[in-house]
Protein backbone atom coordinates (compact mmCIF):
# COMPACT_ATOMS: atom_id res chain seq x y z
CA UNK A 1 0.00 0.00 0.00
CA UNK A 2 1.38 3.39 -0.85
CA UNK A 3 2.13 6.18 1.56
CA UNK A 4 -0.53 8.49 0.11
CA UNK A 5 -3.27 5.90 0.75
CA UNK A 6 -1.99 5.36 4.28
CA UNK A 7 -2.03 9.10 4.99
CA UNK A 8 -5.57 9.46 3.59
CA UNK A 9 -6.71 6.55 5.74
CA UNK A 10 -5.14 7.86 8.95
CA UNK A 11 -6.47 11.35 8.37
CA UNK A 12 -10.01 10.12 7.65
CA UNK A 13 -9.85 7.84 10.66
CA UNK A 14 -8.81 10.67 12.93
CA UNK A 15 -11.62 12.87 11.63
CA UNK A 16 -14.32 10.23 11.92
CA UNK A 17 -13.23 8.09 14.84
CA UNK A 18 -15.72 9.54 17.34
CA UNK A 19 -18.60 8.98 14.97
CA UNK A 20 -17.53 5.44 14.15
CA UNK A 21 -17.07 4.70 17.83
CA UNK A 22 -20.55 5.98 18.61
CA UNK A 23 -22.02 3.75 15.89
CA UNK A 24 -20.17 0.73 17.30
CA UNK A 25 -21.39 1.59 20.80
CA UNK A 26 -25.04 0.85 19.95
CA UNK A 27 -24.19 -2.59 18.61
CA UNK A 28 -21.79 -3.54 21.42
CA UNK A 29 -22.70 -5.37 24.59
CA UNK A 30 -19.92 -3.84 26.70
CA UNK A 31 -16.76 -1.73 26.49
CA UNK A 32 -14.60 -4.61 25.27
CA UNK A 33 -17.11 -5.45 22.61
CA UNK A 34 -17.17 -1.84 21.49
CA UNK A 35 -13.42 -1.80 21.08
CA UNK A 36 -13.55 -5.06 19.12
CA UNK A 37 -16.22 -3.80 16.74
CA UNK A 38 -14.35 -0.53 16.27
CA UNK A 39 -11.15 -2.40 15.59
CA UNK A 40 -12.84 -4.70 13.07
CA UNK A 41 -14.28 -1.67 11.33
CA UNK A 42 -10.85 0.02 11.17
CA UNK A 43 -9.26 -3.10 9.68
CA UNK A 44 -12.01 -3.58 7.12
CA UNK A 45 -11.87 0.07 6.10
CA UNK A 46 -8.13 -0.19 5.53
CA UNK A 47 -8.52 -3.48 3.65
CA UNK A 48 -11.11 -1.92 1.34
CA UNK A 49 -9.24 1.38 0.86
CA UNK A 50 -7.69 0.47 -2.53
CA UNK A 51 -11.23 -0.18 -3.85
CA UNK A 52 -12.56 3.24 -2.79
CA UNK A 53 -13.81 4.93 -5.96
CA UNK A 54 -14.81 8.36 -4.64
CA UNK A 55 -18.42 7.86 -5.77
CA UNK A 56 -19.34 9.01 -2.27
CA UNK A 57 -17.33 10.85 0.36
CA UNK A 58 -14.75 8.83 2.25
CA UNK A 59 -16.60 9.33 5.54
CA UNK A 60 -19.91 8.07 4.03
CA UNK A 61 -18.06 5.03 2.79
CA UNK A 62 -16.48 4.48 6.22
CA UNK A 63 -19.91 4.59 7.89
CA UNK A 64 -21.20 2.04 5.39
CA UNK A 65 -18.38 -0.39 6.18
CA UNK A 66 -18.75 0.14 9.92
CA UNK A 67 -22.48 -0.58 9.84
CA UNK A 68 -21.99 -3.73 7.78
CA UNK A 69 -19.21 -4.91 10.10
CA UNK A 70 -21.44 -4.34 13.13
CA UNK A 71 -24.30 -6.18 11.44
CA UNK A 72 -22.13 -9.16 10.56
CA UNK A 73 -20.39 -9.47 13.90
CA UNK A 74 -23.56 -9.31 15.97
CA UNK A 75 -23.90 -13.06 15.78
CA UNK A 76 -21.86 -14.63 18.57
CA UNK A 77 -20.85 -17.62 16.46
CA UNK A 78 -19.67 -15.39 13.64
CA UNK A 79 -17.86 -13.20 16.13
CA UNK A 80 -16.01 -16.16 17.66
CA UNK A 81 -15.08 -17.56 14.27
CA UNK A 82 -14.13 -14.41 12.40
CA UNK A 83 -12.64 -12.23 15.10
CA UNK A 84 -9.32 -10.64 14.33
CA UNK A 85 -6.47 -10.37 16.80
CA UNK A 86 -6.55 -7.71 19.47
CA UNK A 87 -4.69 -4.56 18.49
CA UNK A 88 -2.85 -2.74 21.24
CA UNK A 89 -2.44 0.43 19.24
CA UNK A 90 -6.12 1.32 19.69
CA UNK A 91 -7.41 2.27 23.10
CA UNK A 92 -10.83 3.51 24.14
CA UNK A 93 -10.39 6.07 26.89
CA UNK A 94 -13.16 6.70 29.35
CA UNK A 95 -13.18 10.15 30.83
CA UNK A 96 -14.21 10.23 34.47
CA UNK A 97 -17.76 11.33 35.08
CA UNK A 98 -16.54 14.23 37.26
CA UNK A 99 -15.12 15.87 34.16
CA UNK A 100 -18.44 15.83 32.42
CA UNK A 101 -21.90 16.58 33.73
CA UNK A 102 -23.48 13.55 35.39
CA UNK A 103 -26.84 14.70 34.02
CA UNK A 104 -25.45 14.58 30.46
CA UNK A 105 -24.04 11.18 31.18
CA UNK A 106 -27.37 9.86 32.42
CA UNK A 107 -29.20 11.24 29.42
CA UNK A 108 -26.69 9.63 27.09
CA UNK A 109 -27.09 6.29 28.85
CA UNK A 110 -30.88 6.53 28.50
CA UNK A 111 -30.64 7.43 24.83
CA UNK A 112 -28.26 4.56 24.13
CA UNK A 113 -30.48 2.15 26.03
CA UNK A 114 -33.47 3.25 23.95
CA UNK A 115 -31.51 2.94 20.71
CA UNK A 116 -30.41 -0.56 21.71
CA UNK A 117 -34.07 -1.54 22.03
CA UNK A 118 -34.62 -0.77 18.33
CA UNK A 119 -34.09 -3.38 15.64
CA UNK A 120 -30.78 -3.32 13.72
CA UNK A 121 -32.18 -1.54 10.68
CA UNK A 122 -33.73 1.25 12.76
CA UNK A 123 -30.52 1.52 14.77
CA UNK A 124 -28.47 1.93 11.61
CA UNK A 125 -30.67 4.70 10.25
CA UNK A 126 -31.09 6.62 13.51
CA UNK A 127 -27.39 6.61 14.38
CA UNK A 128 -26.62 8.12 10.99
CA UNK A 129 -29.32 10.74 11.57
CA UNK A 130 -27.94 11.53 15.02
CA UNK A 131 -24.53 12.02 13.42
CA UNK A 132 -26.29 14.74 11.39
CA UNK A 133 -25.71 13.11 8.04
CA UNK A 134 -27.92 14.52 5.29
CA UNK A 135 -30.70 12.25 4.02
CA UNK A 136 -28.85 11.90 0.74
CA UNK A 137 -25.83 10.37 2.51
CA UNK A 138 -27.99 8.15 4.70
CA UNK A 139 -29.65 6.97 1.51
CA UNK A 140 -26.25 6.22 -0.05
CA UNK A 141 -25.21 4.22 3.01
CA UNK A 142 -28.40 2.27 3.51
CA UNK A 143 -29.50 1.79 -0.10
CA UNK A 144 -32.95 3.28 0.64
CA UNK A 145 -34.48 6.23 -1.21
CA UNK A 146 -34.32 9.65 0.49
CA UNK A 147 -38.12 9.65 0.96
CA UNK A 148 -37.97 6.25 2.51
CA UNK A 149 -35.20 7.44 4.86
CA UNK A 150 -37.27 10.48 5.89
CA UNK A 151 -40.32 8.33 6.70
CA UNK A 152 -38.19 5.89 8.62
CA UNK A 153 -36.46 8.60 10.65
CA UNK A 154 -39.78 10.22 11.59
CA UNK A 155 -41.09 6.90 12.86
CA UNK A 156 -37.92 6.02 14.77
CA UNK A 157 -37.66 9.45 16.41
CA UNK A 158 -41.18 9.09 17.76
CA UNK A 159 -40.28 5.68 19.16
CA UNK A 160 -37.11 7.06 20.74
CA UNK A 161 -38.77 10.08 22.30
CA UNK A 162 -41.50 7.87 23.79
CA UNK A 163 -38.91 5.49 25.17
CA UNK A 164 -36.90 8.32 26.75
CA UNK A 165 -40.01 9.87 28.30
CA UNK A 166 -40.99 6.48 29.73
CA UNK A 167 -37.56 6.12 31.31
CA UNK A 168 -37.53 9.64 32.79
Amino acid sequence: MNQELENTFLKALEQNQQKLLRICSVYAEDADDKKDLFQEAVINIWQAMPAFEEKSSLSTWMFRITLNVCLRLQSRQVRKRDRFLKMDSIRIENITIEETSSEDHERLIKLRACIKKLNDADRAVITLYLEELPYKEISEITGLTENHVAVMIKRIKEKLLNCIIERS
Partner: peptide, 24 residues
Protein backbone atom coordinates in the same frame (compact mmCIF):
# COMPACT_ATOMS: atom_id res chain seq x y z
CA UNK B 1 -31.47 13.92 20.82
CA UNK B 2 -28.62 14.91 18.53
CA UNK B 3 -27.01 16.98 21.26
CA UNK B 4 -27.16 14.16 23.79
CA UNK B 5 -25.89 11.65 21.25
CA UNK B 6 -22.94 13.79 20.32
CA UNK B 7 -22.01 14.51 23.93
CA UNK B 8 -20.17 11.19 24.08
CA UNK B 9 -16.76 12.61 23.02
CA UNK B 10 -16.76 14.21 26.45
CA UNK B 11 -17.06 10.77 27.98
CA UNK B 12 -15.07 8.42 25.79
CA UNK B 13 -12.70 8.64 22.89
CA UNK B 14 -10.54 6.36 20.77
CA UNK B 15 -6.80 6.87 21.01
CA UNK B 16 -4.39 5.66 18.38
CA UNK B 17 -0.70 5.18 18.45
CA UNK B 18 -0.30 6.17 14.84
CA UNK B 19 3.19 4.77 14.50
CA UNK B 20 1.97 1.31 15.59
CA UNK B 21 -1.52 1.36 14.16
CA UNK B 22 -0.54 0.60 10.56
CA UNK B 23 1.82 -2.17 11.69
CA UNK B 24 -0.95 -3.62 13.84
Amino acid sequence: LIKIWQSSPNQERAKFEKSRLMLD
